[in-house]
C-alpha cells in the first residue's frame, strides 16, 4: 500500500492533502490571532492593560510567520513594557518583555522566529531583574546582577536542530521501509531500513 505514495499521482495527491492540512492549521491560527488581537486592542482602549497583555500574548502564541497581527501585538507589548519601565513598574515591564521572549521560544521550529530581537529583549530583562535584585537587597552591584542574569538568558541548551531533523527523517524512513519490506518482500527495503535505523541511532546520540 505504501508504494502508492511513490507513484506520480499518489505523490501529487499526498502533497495536496498535506497542503490542505497546513491550510486548516493556518486558518485555525489565523482565527485565534484575529480574535485575540481584536480583544487585546479593545482592552487597551478601555485601559485594562493586564487583560490586553494576556490577549497580545495569546496572539503571539498562535504564531504565523510574517503575520501583521503578530507584529502589531509584539509592538504593543513592547510599547507597554517601555511605558511600565519608565514608570518604574518593573514587575509589569518584566511580564511584557518575558511574554514576548517566551512566545518566540515557544514558536521555535527549525529556527526561532524574530530571533534578531532576542538580544534586545535579553538586555531589557536582565536590566530589570538586576534592578529588582538591587532593590530587594539581594545584590549591591547592579552590573554584577546584570551579568549574572545575562549569562542565564544568553545560553541555549536546546538539542541540535540539524541532528533533530535527521532523527525524525531517519525514524519515519525506517518505519516506512520496514512496512514496505513486509508488503513487498524486497531485501532492498530491509537493507535501507536497517541503514536508516543506524543513522537514526547516530542522530539520536548527536542531537
Amino acid at each position: 500500500m505504501g508504494y502508492i505514495l511513490f507513484t506520480k499521482s499518489g505523490l501529487k495527491k499526498t502533497l495536496g492533502i498535506g497542503l490542505c492540512l497546513l491550510f486548516i492549521i493556518f486558518m485555525r491560527l489565523l482565527l485565534d490571532q484575529w480574535q485575540a488581537y481584536d480583544m487585546g486592542m479593545d482592552m487597551l482602549e478601555k485601559g485594562d492593560n493586564r487583560t490586553a497583555i494576556m490577549f497580545f500574548d495569546r496572539t503571539l502564541n498562535a504564531h504565523i510567520p510574517f503575520s501583521p497581527l503578530e507584529n502589531n501585538a509584539r509592538s504593543e507589548l513592547l510599547k507597554l513594557a517601555s511605558g511600565y519601565e519608565k514608570n518604574k513598574d518593573y514587575e509589569f515591564a518584566l511580564l511584557c518583555y518575558e511574554s514576548v521572549r517566551t512566545s518566540r521560544y515557544l514558536a521555535r521550529h527549525i529556527w526561532i522566529p524574530d530571533n534578531d530581537e532576542l538580544p534586545f529583549l535579553n538586555d531589557r530583562i536582565a536590566d530589570i531583574k538586576a534592578t529588582l535584585l538591587v532593590r530587594d537587597g539581594m545584590f549591591k552591584d547592579h552590573r554584577k546582577a546584570y551579568d549574572q542574569q545575562m549569562t542565564i538568558l544568553s545560553s541555549d541548551y536546546a538539542p541540535s536542530t540539524f541532528w533533530s531533523i535527521i532523527v525524525v527523517i531517519t525514524f519515519w524512513a525506517y518505519l516506512g521501509l520496514i512496512v514496505l519490506w513486509i508488503f513487498r518482500k524486497k531485501k532492498v527495503y530491509l537493507t535501507f531500513g536497517i541503514m536508516s535505523f543506524m543513522l537514526w541511532i547516530v542522530a539520536l546520540y548527536l542531537a
Partner: peptide, 17 residues
C-alpha cells in the same frame, strides 16, 4: 515523542499546539 517532534518543525503555532 518522535511523532510530536516531527510536528514541532511546522512553522506555525507554539510547541504545545
Amino acid at each position: 515523542l518522535l511523532a510530536a517532534k516531527t510536528l514541532i518543525f511546522l512553522p506555525f503555532g507554539n510547541i504545545a499546539f
